[in-house]
């Protein structure tokens, strides 16, 4: 039994540390037995961040929950998860009944158990546009410079001007619209019952994911668990992966690219989806490079962009075009 477990552990370790492993999983499930009254629970893992659970329990109410935490210290050993320390707990009110019942096994975010490996999936580029000043604030700063130089021997006037311009510049940067939302890639194999969806967004991801990664790695995360799960790491690129049911019919797509099993790519323009035939090859832009990455060789592939303002993409592996 021990030998079998050792082999299992080695395979898992290999999958964990293998070359395809681009990032570290930042969503681990810990099981807690809770008894009310409990208003809030904070689980802290040193060096990784914290989880704030704020659903609350009334007096006498009991529940057992799998709560996501942003990391684990150390790695599970041959003895299993016993060597991995539990997160530090702070409860509100203090002294509420909170019992750590162990780490959930298997962890859904680990590639060996769930094959939910983010490194094998296309990651949508996450724009860093959140932190650019914008033309308006720069123009205001330049105008303030010109006026300030003209009035620099009238200190009071210059100071009032500087304060107003400074306030304006700060507000213009702070209130700049953020990105349109998460970038999403739906990916699946023809015939599979379950597909995957990869979400990428800077700073904040909302939703339930099986695996979460952050770039640059090592940033502390905060996971807020309420009616929804919200993962935040200001300024960092966050990627989440989750399983979704396979599509039962192809959706309408604004742009389509097809690869034959022999590796020939062609752009096909828009497609109404379903059983409709694809258009003949058209001249146009090639599929984005990041969307074409990590594709298996020797099988047909369909790549597509969903219509609408959001950035949503489709990858179907094993796609064969009807004649």
């Amino acid at each position: 039994m021990k030998v079998r477990f050792a082999l299992l552990w080695l395979v898992w370790l290999g999958a964990w540390a293998g070359p395809l492993q681009a990032g570290e999983n930042r969503r681990w499930l810990a099981t807690y037995e809770l008894e009310g009254p409990l208003e809030r629970l904070i689980l802290e893992v040193e060096g990784f961040g914290e989880t704030v659970w704020s659903v609350g329990l009334a007096g006498g109410e009991r529940t057992t929950l799998d709560l996501p935490v942003p990391g684990i210290q150390g790695t599970p050993s041959l003895d299993g998860w016993a060597s991995v320390p539990a997160p530090r707990v702070t409860s509100v009110p203090k002294g509420a009944s909170v019992v750590f019942a162990g780490w959930r096994t298997p962890q859904p975010g680990e590639p060996f158990f769930g094959a939910q490996d983010l490194a094998r999936r296309a990651r949508p580029p996450v724009p860093g546009g959140d932190v650019s000043p914008g033309a308006a604030s720069l123009a205001l700063a330049l105008a303030a410079l010109v006026l300030g130089l003209a009035w620099c021997h009238r200190p009071r006037t210059a100071l009032v001007l500087g304060l107003v311009a400074g306030l304006g510049c700060g507000l213009l940067v702070l209130t700049r619209p953020t990105d349109a939302g998460p970038r999403r890639v739906l990916e699946g194999q023809v015939g599979a019952l379950s597909w995957f969806e990869v979400w990428g967004r800077r700073g904040r991801l909302v939703g339930s994911f099986e695996r979460v990664e952050v770039q640059p790695a090592g940033a502390p995360l905060r996971i807020d668990v309420g009616d929804e799960e919200e993962i935040s790491a200001p300024g960092r690129a966050l990627y989440g992966l989750r399983s979704v049911p396979a599509l039962d019919r192809y959706p309408p797509l604004a742009e389509v690219w097809v690869r034959t099993p022999r590796g020939e790519w062609s752009g096909r323009g828009a497609w109404s989806g379903g059983d409709e035939l694809l258009r003949p090859p058209v001249e146009g832009a090639a599929a984005p490079g990041w969307l074409r990455g990590q594709l298996p060789q020797g099988v047909g592939v369909l790549l597509g962009r969903f219509p609408g303002p959001g950035q949503r993409w489709l990858r179907v592996i094993g796609f064969l075009e009807r004649d």
Partner: peptide
């Protein structure tokens, strides 16, 4: 004060970028 006044817009932009 005039010296400070000229620095404020750039400092405000930089502080806002840090926060963002």
């Amino acid at each position: 004060p005039s010296f400070l006044a000229l620095s404020l817009p750039l400092l405000a932009i930089a502080a806002a970028l840090d926060l963002r």
